[in-house]
Simulated assay, not measured.
Amino acid sequence: MTAEIIPLPRKDAPEPSLDAMLALTATGMNAVNTVILDRMQSQIPLIPALAGHLISGGGKRLRPMLTLAGAELVGYNGARHYKLAAAVEFIHTATLLHDDVVDGSDLRRGKAAANIIFGNPATVLVGDFLFSRAFELMVEDGSLKVLKILSNASAVIAEGEVDQLTAQRKLETSEERYLQIIRAKTAALFAAATRIAAVVAECDDAQEQALDEYGRNLGVAFQLVDDAIDYDSEAAAMGKTRGDDFREGKMTLPVILAYSRGDDMERVFWREAIGGFRTEDSDLEEAIALIHRHDAVNDTRERARHFAQRAIDAISIFPDGRARQAMTEAAMFAVSRGY
């Protein structure tokens, strides 16, 4: 079976959406949501209250949908992937809870972050609870290979978050280092989510690798766009406080590009801003102006399109059909979205 190159849509084409993915996975996501609601319960009332605050908070649920879509793509007709998709969502939710504590976030998905309502200690501990639930679901599945894939992804995510923390406020952070960070903290779970669909379907190595590459490249594209959005959208659209990355001194690609292309005066500004000495709203506006002056948002999105194309190309080894079309449009949506 030979791969084909599937081009991204022209700029004048209709805006892609997740509608095809949502339709493809609707029935399966009902089963996944049933598992999620069941396994987030506890005799300690604070646990489901805090977990439910985030889980029911309007997220895209893209990662578990990718597990279901991957299963559709390879023709899997069983039910094992429902619990595993729920495990993927629990891992993701746990990392979000921990991230909000580390970052001191005020908003998540347009409403108060769990740490603001429930406090940091409870938020961290409920994140730990959800990680534990995820591993229970993996063990129940009984596949050592699935357990290895998802447990490795969990470890890589943690490494990526620590790596990002050590790169914080360091202007010497390179684009290569940045990509290394987002491959770990974001793309690893995307890759695991799609790859386990091939494992439960007992696919061959080439198909398993293709789904891994699809998820990994989609994850990089998704994070690149997230980082571009922080300097290109209003807070209402983003669902978080505008300029969070800027105030936290995160070296994301728009900043890396703007700093490398800036003149001496601009670099003085970036040293002071990323160093934490210029964090007012007026400083954020100056940062945004510099980023746009050097076309750093557009170039970040262009890099995202490159990785999205790689994701689309990876699944071209599979026959065309509803699942491949939905996964292709999901990659297109990842790079065109403004939220």
Rank of each mutant, 00 (worst) to 15 (best):
V74L: 09
N77W: 02
A79T: 15
H81M: 11
H81P: 02
H81S: 04
Y82F: 15
Y82G: 00
K83F: 01
L84M: 10
L84F: 07
L84H: 03
A85W: 07
V88R: 09
V88N: 08
E89H: 12
F90S: 04
H92Q: 14
T93F: 09
A94F: 14
L96K: 12
L97H: 10
D99A: 08
D99V: 13
D99M: 13
D103Q: 07
G104M: 04
S105N: 03
D106G: 06
L107N: 00
L107E: 02
L107R: 01
L107A: 01
R108P: 01
R109Q: 04
R109F: 04
G110C: 07
G110Y: 11
K111F: 03
A113P: 03
A114Y: 04
A114C: 11
I117L: 13
I117R: 09
F118E: 03
F118S: 02
F118Y: 15
G119Y: 05
P121W: 06
V124S: 03
L125A: 06
G127V: 02
S132C: 13
A134L: 12
F135A: 03
E136T: 09
L137Q: 01
M138R: 00
D141F: 09
G142N: 04
G142M: 07
S143C: 09
L144Q: 07
K145M: 06
K145I: 08
K148V: 01
L150T: 04
S151N: 06
N152I: 01
A153L: 14
A153S: 13
S154M: 13
E159W: 01
G160A: 08
V162S: 08
V162M: 15
V162W: 13
Q164S: 10
L165D: 06
T166E: 14
T166D: 10
R169C: 11
K170L: 10
L171D: 00
E172I: 12
T173N: 09
T173D: 06
E176Q: 15
E176W: 08
R177C: 00
Y178N: 06
Y178T: 02
